[in-house]
Write a protein that binds this DNA or RNA. Structure first.
Lengths: 211, 211
DNA sequence: ACGATACTAGACGTATAGTATTGTAAAATG
DNA sequence: CATTTTACAATACTATACGTCTAGTATCGT
């Protein structure tokens, strides 16, 4: 926020780090909604005002803490085998997102539903850069002919990661190596059958579903 | 909750309906987090205790109201053309989920992140039945040979709906007819290219992404 | 009539968010 | 070194929402 150097006392990096560290610790025990700014301040040994001075709400603090924690970079798999690389990528990301720290990802998406400004920040400063990184891989795969080059990059990204996000949010399915492999395998080959299509029995009645 | 018929005064269906109606109206203006139980009670002209007597929290009220609203059933498309049917299905569902009322869906997923009991209810009583309905369609398509019968049904469901859910929650991509068509089309044919694979240039360095 | 239950209305205690105040510590400026 | 400016911790404070409790009333079965 304040860039070069003001005239008075400098921002305390000790306090900043203590706040981010305390936030991460608290988020391992409780959800973002269930932790309080007071608790963060107490645990960090700082005044509550210091938190509100630099962040608009605890969600922003958590996002900063989360991003800082993710200096644990993961090298994009590169065996040359696109299927293996994608499956490995998806699995490593899903492993992180179901870990005690990585779980916060889901809560950022939750927070985005009621805080539009946070949603923009999360999308632009967290999601976009990561999607861009994977996009580079996809571009190369399309250029090399491993992936159909006529396809839309954004659609590809969402087909790859959407199923995982859905399961993260709704909790209706497992997230492990077998599932990530199945997702990527199915996605690569397509769900359409190569077998000749059977004739539709005329007596079947349409199913009715509730949207 | 209370079973056949107690001995005292019966539950007031007028109050119940007023509560659900007021909740839906409020949810058109604000997010689930931003509406209050007091506001629901005031707008419905009921006592707050009546709400807490029958529902554990406003999220449960909203879910009941949401389900009741969804008597607007949608017939599962059945042209016999699996691709068209799936695209039509996905589009009709996404149209609803981005509508003023349907938007609540995202907020149920958000609420699930901090209320495990609600998450179970939402998953079992809302998500499961709907997935089952689509599952019936998929089963038939697999049986008829339109969809690869070796595939896993749950994976299929998540590949179809996951991308939409991701965009609903993160808001990073459009949700319209063109997008739903592209998702289904890509999913049916697979993302793998049929073109011969190019040789990997040996000098390329692996991209580094942050998980 | 009587007991049981649901109802509205609103007071109440608790918790949390976010703001305001006070006195102090550190840094730049002169 | 003195002054000014800003950050800081600590804490009081306001506003709001949740969820409970109480009082008095209405409606049902027996």
């Amino acid at each position: 926020m304040t860039d070069p150097k003001g005239r008075g006392r400098q921002r305390s990096s000790e306090s900043e780090e203590a706040i981010l560290k305390a936030t991460l610790q608290l988020l391992k025990e409780k959800s973002l909604r269930d932790i309080t700014v007071d608790a963060i301040a107490r645990k960090a040994g700082v005044g509550k005002m210091t938190i509100y001075k630099w962040w608009p709400s605890k969600a922003y603090v958590a996002l900063d803490a989360f991003r800082k924690k993710m200096n644990k970079v993961v090298v994009m798999p590169d065996t040359g085998d696109t299927e293996r690389d994608l499956a490995e990528l998806l699995y490593s990301i899903m492993s992180f997102y179901i870990s005690p720290t990585g779980r916060i990802f889901s809560q950022f998406l939750a927070e985005s539903q009621s805080d539009p400004e946070f949603a923009v920040l999360f999308r632009e400063h967290f999601l976009k850069p990561r999607r861009e990184s994977v996009g580079v891989f996809l571009d190369r795969a399309m250029k090399e002919g491993a992936i159909d080059h006529t396809l839309n990059r954004e659609i590809l990204l969402d087909l790859i990661f959407g199923p995982m996000v859905f399961r993260l949010m709704a909790g209706h399915g497992a997230l492990n190596r077998a599932e990530s492999d199945a997702m990527i395998s199915t996605l690569l080959r397509g769900i359409r059958s190569n077998a000749p299509k059977l004739k539709r029995a005329s007596g079947d009645k349409a199913a009715v579903i509730q949207v």
